[in-house]
Computed example of a mutant assay.
Amino acid sequence: MRAPIGDFADARPAVDCLDLLPDPVAAAVRAWRGTVPADSFLYVDSDPAVADTSVFVEHHGQELLDASANCVIVAGRRGETTTLAACVVRSATRVDVNGVVRKELGSRRVRFAPADVATGDSGMEYGGITPLGLPDGWPVLVDAPVVDTEWVLVGSGRRRGKLILPGKAFAELPGAVVLEGLGVRPEPAPEQPGVS
């Protein structure tokens, strides 16, 4: 079947591709009980060499920038307590770590989690982390425009392959909190005098 977004000619229901997903992601698809049916989750194959957002959209089309989301793991710290959380924002935006995330987690300090922590604790590969199948108790902060997008392309838990989900499904993830302003557009670089 053809994917509803992107140039992927071979989209398959994720429930038929569980062997291509890491164990926690496959378990989450298998156990899904949201109002958005799990058989609407699609798996598309993709080259792991083009998994990073900028290269991926260059390869598969710029229109995917607003129809894809990044899932980044952050570590919020207050005193001796560290809270790991996932932040899901459209790929054209960046996570407002020091504003929205810090306030939501009630942390004094928030930083991006080190790669070994993000991958080790999630059981997923760096560059492919997805909000499906994250450890119990992790908050999953979702930018509201992601939920309002008809179809959203996101990592599969591995660098190879992507998942395409209805945007509404992100609001039904375990631990999901939908927030306005979580994703912010990057500031354009200031013009350099005398440079053209």
Rank of each mutant, 00 (worst) to 15 (best):
F41T: 02
D66F: 00
N70G: 01
S46D: 03
D136R: 08
D66W: 02
L132Q: 03
H59Q: 10
R77A: 14
R12E: 14
S40V: 10
R33E: 05
T82I: 15
D52T: 03
V117M: 00
S46C: 07
V101P: 10
W32S: 01
R77M: 14
K162Q: 12
S40D: 15
K162A: 11
V36G: 03
A169T: 14
Q62T: 02
E104R: 15
L20H: 10
R108L: 10
L182H: 11
D10R: 14
V72T: 12
G106T: 15
S68D: 00
A14R: 04
E80H: 14
R33I: 02
G127R: 07
S122A: 09
V88M: 12
V72L: 15
V55I: 12
R159D: 13
P4A: 05
Q62G: 00
A113E: 11
G183V: 12
G123I: 13
A31N: 02
I73V: 15
L65N: 01
R30L: 03
R185N: 05
T35G: 12
P48I: 11
T35V: 12
T81G: 12
P188C: 01
D66V: 04
A38V: 00
A3F: 10
V140K: 04
G183D: 09
F112T: 10
R12C: 11
H60G: 02
V55S: 11
G61N: 00
V110I: 15
R33S: 12
E58W: 07
L132M: 10
